[in-house]
Design a protein around this nucleic acid. Structure first.
Lengths: 192, 192
DNA sequence: TATTCATACTTGACAGTGTCTAGTGCGAAA
DNA sequence: TTTCGCACTAGACACTGTCAAGTATGAATA
């Protein structure tokens, strides 16, 4: 019986970073603390990620890939489900989500792989709006409605994760119902 | 003719912090850099703000006060105008906005003055929703619709400021129209 | 007028940080 | 057997937030 191969260092480091990001927040991530948690020297993470931004880029790439996958799956259940899946991704992958939209932590234009995943996720949202408003709608209308749908999902996500909204909610069922209701209201305004 | 009284140090420091927050981002704010820009010793800021979080608390308090004022003024023009004023505040006070919802930078429960201003701003939004859905609506419905309206305004703000949305917009007029359209779509779903 | 005292600072020190430079050990290829 | 590249380690540097202690100054008080 072969021993389980130990996780490659990169995985260990990213996981440690995600744990911190999901807890205190991504700004508390320190290269030296990651090295300490991985039980390697303080310079080992640099070999794999280049610098601090490199770790955030890896998190962005992975996060947008997961978000894209989950949105893809849920789109079959309708636009409301797609909207809900965005919020649920944020709640279930808090560490990723907190990093993915922080342009100061990592400028994705310098990390093409991360940018590709981000564009893909945006494309899924865009296509969904097109399928709702019709192919013959003019470009600015589509842009507006995409921005609208994205704003609702993104706003609710950030307010639930870091904002004061969670404290105002009674139970988990309430939150579930809240997400469903907000998604329904969002879609009801689209394509009119 | 009396000499103009120099700005009190606290104001100089907060302004320097806001400039950095509005540019690179609030995480780039360093106590020593603020001291340097104010041409005082590296410990002078500590005398007025206690620690780094104290500076963020001052920014939160001021930011929520301004937001509250601007929402108050615009409410007379209707719910859509109120929604728009939220987004415009974010765009016009980027430094404040980037700090106000970052619970990791400053936990407002430790700074009652900031919390008061935040609660006031939230109250204005809440009251507006109540006036739209009617006083006899049940509590959870009001909560849901407040969360919805807040999500739209907040999501659009963050996506315009830090997200990739701004890059996809052609001109300033387009952005103005985008904000107006999104606000209209948001309000159209409320109270149905 | 002399003394006290709070306010608004300054100076110095310490541990922790990101990152540059320069190594070291080691398995595979030649 | 030697070479070579990969995955690290070790040391140093400038910078950070913050604790502790000192100083100047203007007003209040005796």
């Amino acid at each position: 019986m072969p021993l389980a191969k130990p996780d490659p260092l990169q995985r260990v480091i990213v996981d440690a970073a995600l744990e911190i990001a999901s807890g205190v927040g991504p700004d508390a991530i320190s290269m030296r603390e990651l090295a300490r948690q991985a039980k390697v020297s303080h310079q080992a993470p640099y070999h794999h990620f280049g610098d601090r931004a490199g770790i955030f880029a890896a998190i962005c790439e992975e996060g947008f890939a997961i978000l894209g996958d989950e949105m893809c799956e849920s789109r079959n259940l309708g636009a409301e489900a797609l909207c809900e899946s965005y919020v649920r991704f944020a709640l279930n992958h808090r560490g990723h989500f907190r990093v993915m939209f922080r342009t100061d932590l990592c400028d994705m234009t310098s990390y093409p792989n991360a940018a590709i995943q981000a564009d893909r996720a945006f494309g899924i949202l865009y296509d969904e709006v097109v399928s709702l408003v019709g192919l013959d709608a003019d470009e600015f209308a589509i842009q507006t409605q995409t921005a609208y749908m994205w704003s609702v999902a993104h706003g609710l996500s950030t307010l639930l994760i870091d904002g004061p909204l969670l404290k105002k909610i009674g139970s988990v069922e309430d939150m579930d119902q809240l997400i469903k209701n907000v998604a329904r209201m969002a879609i009801s305004s689209i394509g009119v």
